[in-house]
Amino acid sequence: MNLEFNIEGGNFSRAGHASSEVKKMLKQLGIDARCIKSIVIALYEGEVNVVAHAYEGRILVKMEPHKITTEIMDKGPGIADIELAMQEGYSTASKAVREMGFGAGMGLANMKKNTDELTIESTVGEGTTVKMVNYF
């Protein structure tokens, strides 16, 4: 089963909407509660990253027996140095975004901690694709 969502860059009022829908769906399917918690954390961070940094994005959730793959693809500025971006505390978020309590440089670290596999591919000036896999 697959789910697909669109994310609007810059629109914080919608941030978390896709994560909430995915959470409901996974609960209905009776997926392990701990696994749902992890996926929701990782997906929310991914969603917020698109809202905070990109122009638009798309989320694809693919559910298979014992495996959930989440892909977040955006059109945006891309990440120049992925290794640096992965460092806790490093952020390029704007002042306005930081004042909301986002942009603490914890998002990608949260994603890594809560997924079994995390792959990030990015082209500066084009966009970023994040792929996360959770087994349960």
């Binding site: 961070e45 917020v48 909301m100 309590g101 986002f102 603490a104 914890m106 998002g107 949260n110 901690k113």
Partner: peptide
């Protein structure tokens, strides 16, 4: 007051104390 901190570390049924007032 850091949202990712809460997202990553708060647990079910806890009370969240914060100064952030927006809908997120």
């Amino acid at each position: 007051d850091l949202l990712s901190d809460v997202m990553g570390n708060a647990r079910e049924n806890q009370i969240w104390i914060t100064l952030q007032v927006h809908q997120n």
